[in-house]
Design a protein around this nucleic acid. Sequence first.
RNA 1: GGGUGAUUAGCUCAGAUGGUAGAGCAACUGACUCUUAAUCAGUGGGCCCGGGGUUCGAGUCCCCGAUCACCCA
Length: 493
Amino acid sequence: MNEKNESEIIKSREENLKFILEKGIMPYKYSFQRTGTINEILEKNKDIKEGAESEDVEMLAGRLISLRLHGKTIFGHIKDSGNKIQIYVRKDDIGEEQYEIFKKLDIGDIIGVEGKIFKTRTGEITVKVSKFELLTKSLLPLPEKWHGLKDKEIRYRKRYLDLIVNDNVKKNFELRTKIIKEIRNFLDMQGFLEVETPMMQLIPGGAKAKPFLTHHNALDLDLYLRIAPELYLKRLLVGGFEKVYEINRNFRNEGISIKHNPEFTMLELYVAYADYKVVMQIAEDLVVNIADKVLGTRIIEYQGEKIDLTPPWKKLKMTDAIKEYSGIDTEKESEQELINRLKQREVEIRQGITKGELIALTFEEFVEEKLIQPVFITDFPVEVSPLAKESRKNPGFAERFEPYIFGREIGNGFSELNDPKEQEKRFKEQIEQDTGGEVARVIDKDFIEALKVGMPPAGGLGIGVDRLIMFFTDAPSIRDVILFPLLRPQGSE
RNA sequence: GGGUGAUUAGCUCAGAUGGUAGAGCAACUGACUCUUAAUCAGUGGGCCCGGGGUUCGAGUCCCCGAUCACCCA
């Protein structure tokens, strides 16, 4: 950390750099023309016989990750974004002067090599180096080669080191990109239009969460980073788009945990003329499609638990789920009885709480964590579903669902409320109930106005993309699927 | 916000009962022209997270703080 230690450890690298500069070698080259990636070259030469040499001279580049010096020969490995390959350097092949320069390379340097491909006695496909070039000098040591980098703090803070050293980390992030691409592909094929709506909003709506505040100078205007895109996507339904979706960042100014990062990626989609049943089907199809296309299996293992994504997923009304998993009959029990149960679990109960809110809290407290296999929880109390239509069959409950996997809510969907007067009333009730600053104090009048123009009946769905990716990559923490998770800054540096 | 644990060499980790610190890898020097956790011989490297205390003496005990991890709200 301090200068003295650092100079101890990098002294030899600085000396090597000096040696190289004295030889007139530029330590930071502009480019290097490769004949292929390491994977391509390995594939091309996979059938080469032991002792034989390839006809073609190949040019490869990568980071030097290991070195074995044997007097007049050197073995090592270089690694590019796809794979690693062994290199073999002989003094006889590259000449005395070049050999001396090669010996001054350090693990971590990025080099280009030129040479024919052969197979060693031990059967490893190897580059017989006839020429090499230093492309980038590395001045700091890499983490140790077989234990790798374990310290979570350094892994998250210095993700570049994590990516260099831990191959599975890189694979998980590649998988993340594949999953998101597959989501887009799936929706595009069904005629959805991907759109982008404001990240900076005057009134942060569409969810219950504390927002981040920012300021626009020229307009002298306070703005909020969005907590959800919902109200803007619905405006697009009013405008005549019938199937829209957005995959983008939401920001919530709340605690950080294994399941929460202040900025996270959300998918929201809306389908005109559809109700919640239609989007529930889309949610199931979407997840199963990822399993099929990206993993090639519908049975995934998450944190040692086998999860079977094979459709159709179970559907359970919230009150039935409570009955089934906890034995509590919320229809029969009075509000006070539910309050007593919750207080025993040290759940905070606000003054004037409604029955619906109590049902939702009971569900969270007694049921959620038990929902390991995929299940749709439906029929949420209207009081906790201010943007959803009331059920046609089940008064007091909304046409709403949330898919649960491994005790975690991975999405949220409903038949979208499009009655402007009812919507305004629900917003007002929300503001009255809010105690924690999780609801904007102002009603989004423009949104109400849009509803007055007329929004077609519609089903909507939101899916927490990071959490979904956690399942598919068997990641225990959301930080393992976000390249640069938010951490508290450290004092020095 | 509360609780528990961690923090020792560049990395991964040891350091009972308090006596100024150890290993492997990495680094450095030397030997070695098919090695691959190369091998062999040698060398250097530490404000033991920070600040206070207790003690003749603290990496170790106590208090405060920092960061991270996990659990809870």
